[in-house]
């Protein structure tokens, strides 16, 4: 097994506000890691650090052995240029709470945009892949629609297909079901379950305890910028050791 994500003592501050105070985490290839925690605990910020949407202040993050955002040369860290950061992001897919589909493009164009423009892949090859990805998330019939014509759950499934079109080795999910109507949550979770079953490495920030228990291989509970507790999801959820974990779980369960 190879380590897909390795975080060593990651610190992040916005001005004087310390959001992450030393996060350590290892996610193995093919593993689904769920991140739980109250809002403001820094879990979304940590996820955004993994693909360098946020710059970390201290520590190291490695994805598939690649140091994210920096390069070590002669014992000194050099910031990576825009192109290198973009190259690192190509293999890390991300799904956002608010979907963030491109509203001026059709569903198919949304999925095809990055492979065509970033990787300059052959358009017809990308098209075939995009269509099959959309079929996979159950939206093959909607490919000529604009995002504004879809429901939240459908939009989020398109967002997943869009991220997958880049053939990432790691997928990051930032509260993917939090902006959805309760009845639409299931369809997105089902898509994510399929993805997990196919062996995708996933880091999922979520409030869906059921999903964490059923699909997660590991669970970390964050509060106040630190990892309070981690372990196999069933164990942590059934018998939390820390009082903060107990308090949180008693509120959400």
């Amino acid at each position: 097994m190879t380590e897909m994500v390795r975080a060593d003592n990651v610190h992040k501050a916005f001005g004087s506000l310390e959001v992450l105070k030393g996060i350590d985490l290892v996610v193995q290839q093919g593993e689904v890691c769920c991140v739980l925690g109250p809002s403001g605990s820094g879990k979304s910020t940590f996820l955004r650090c993994i693909n360098h949407l946020e710059k970390i202040n201290a520590g190291r993050i490695l994805v598939d052995g690649d140091l994210i955002g920096y390069q070590e040369r002669g014992g000194k860290l050099h910031e990576l240029g825009e192109k290198d950061v973009a190259r690192q992001r190509q293999s890390i897919g991300m799904v956002f709470q608010r979907f963030n589909l491109f509203p001026h493009m059709t569903v198919l164009q949304n999925v095809m945009e990055a492979p065509c423009r970033v990787k300059s892949e052959n358009k017809s090859v990308v098209r075939d892949r995009a269509v099959s990805l959309l079929d996979q998330v159950g939206l093959g019939a909607k490919k000529e629609n604009y995002p504004g014509q879809l429901s939240g759950g459908q939009q989020q499934r398109v967002a997943i297909a869009r991220a997958l079109a880049m053939r990432p080795k790691l997928m990051l999910f930032d509260e993917p079901t939090s902006a959805l109507d309760p009845e639409l949550v299931g369809e997105v979770l089902d898509t994510m379950k399929d993805l997990a079953r196919d062996g995708m490495t996933m880091v999922v920030v979520t409030h869906e305890i059921g999903f964490a228990r059923e699909v997660g291989d590991s669970l970390i509970f964050m509060d106040g910028g630190v990892v309070v507790e981690q372990g196999p999801p069933r164990e942590v959820i059934a018998n939390p050791r820390e009082t903060r974990t107990k308090a949180f779980l008693s509120k959400v369960l």
């Binding site: 693909n51 949407l53 192109k83 973009a86 956002f96 963030n100 990055a114 970033v118 869009r162 991220a163």
Partner: peptide
């Protein structure tokens, strides 16, 4: 919405 640029950056698009 800044989320638009963020999503595009996350896909590996240059500025």
């Amino acid at each position: 919405d800044p989320g638009q640029a963020e999503a595009a950056h996350a896909l590996g698009m240059s500025r």
